[in-house]
């Protein structure tokens, strides 16, 4: 690890003042950044610790929930309102990493964690994310874990977060504050598809800080869940995961639905096409499968992950079926 300076920020303004320099990075729990600094994939000259920034989990009058960026992953999954009103979010967090890591990881750090592509970690192979223009050894390499949707000829890496898949499905908003002021953007607009600039994970500007995540009210998300398929029963990244919420009308049609996929793309993948197809249609295996087919129609699997499109289709169908419950 190259030497760096360490400072602790006490509020957002101080963090942004300290973090304005391009060689500076914000530090959450360190569970991703410290690892990448050891591997030389990140080389900041200064770290600004933002775990001490104020911000808890606040319930607003309108039913929305505001979660400070420094709140630990465990605290989000443990919060009573999250468990009762957004079970898919609690389940997504609990499906990620280990209990020890969740105790350290912050909301901001989880959102901005970088890909687990082994070629990105390995400084001896080509990676466009690590060194723009270098080429990508994953495209023709071991790519079982890699993307099937929205990838490019430059990068087939996936975003590894479970939490973000639920946030994408819930229409979460991300509050940002930077040298240029404040803005709020949908989480689904925060992460980029790789295109020809896979070195840019997100649309964040230099020195921009995540200050909070807001979950808009969504009463029917009480009926929601998260399911993750992985190579072992626990403590492994997703091959494919699904966050889903289902609102059934009295006549058995789908009044509304939320669907997002993990493990398939460079960003948490909101399955808008499938959602659109399902609204107003009779709930049931047939329409679930048709919607999943439509969402995966553009899938472009690689050498080692041809199983992913079918796995994603089955997972979508099964999870929506589970949410139908007794109505099925």
């Amino acid at each position: 690890m190259i030497p760096f300076t360490y400072t602790r920020a006490h509020d957002a303004a101080e963090a942004i003042r300290l973090g304005a320099d391009a060689a500076t990075k914000y530090l959450g729990g360190g569970t991703n950044l410290v690892d990448l600094m050891r591997e030389g994939a990140e080389r900041p000259g200064a770290l600004v610790d933002v775990t001490g920034l104020p911000g808890a989990i606040e319930e607003s009058q309108d039913g929305s929930l505001r979660i400070g960026a420094a709140v630990r992953n465990t605290a989000v999954a443990e919060h009573r309102a999250v468990r009762a009103r957004y079970p898919m979010l609690a389940r997504a967090i609990l499906a990620g990493a280990s209990a020890q890591i969740r105790n350290m990881a912050t909301v901001g750090g989880n959102i901005l964690q970088r890909t687990r592509c082994a070629y990105f970690y390995d400084g001896t192979v080509r990676c466009n994310k690590r060194t723009p223009g270098a080429g990508c050894d994953a495209i023709d390499g071991f790519n079982r874990m890699h993307a099937i949707l929205g990838a490019s000829a430059y990068c087939v890496a996936t975003h590894p977060s479970d939490m973000c898949v639920a946030l994408a499905a819930l229409d979460a908003l991300v509050e940002l504050e930077g040298p240029g002021g404040r803005r709020t953007i949908p989480l689904t607009d925060l992460h980029r598809l790789p295109g020809d600039r896979p070195d840019l994970d997100t649309v964040l500007g230099p020195g921009e800080l995540i200050t909070a995540v807001v979950l808009p009210p969504l009463p029917w998300a009480q009926r929601s869940t998260y399911r993750k398929v992985r190579d072992r029963a626990s403590y492994a990244f997703a091959l494919v995961s699904v966050a889903a919420a289902l609102d059934l009308a009295e006549d058995g049609t789908v009044r509304d639905v939320r669907l997002a996929l993990g493990g398939v793309a460079h960003k948490p993948w909101r399955a808008e096409r499938a959602e659109q197809m399902l609204r107003g249609r009779p709930a049931g295996t047939e329409s679930f499968r048709a919607a999943a087919d439509a969402e995966l129609a553009g899938a472009a699997p690689l050498r080692d992950n041809a199983f992913k499109p079918e796995l994603a289709r089955r997972l979508i169908t099964a999870v929506l079926g589970e949410l139908m419950g007794d109505a099925a």
Binding site: L27, G29, G30, V34, D35, S98, Q100, M104
Partner: peptide, 27 residues
């Protein structure tokens, strides 16, 4: 592993379990 992947370095901080390999001591 020194990478957060095995748990051998688990300790308690104020009663909460963390992995100490990815924890900077100054934090």
């Amino acid at each position: 592993c020194n990478q957060g992947a095995c748990g051998a370095c688990s300790v308690l901080v104020d009663g909460e379990r963390i992995i100490s390999c990815l924890a900077l001591a100054v934090q």
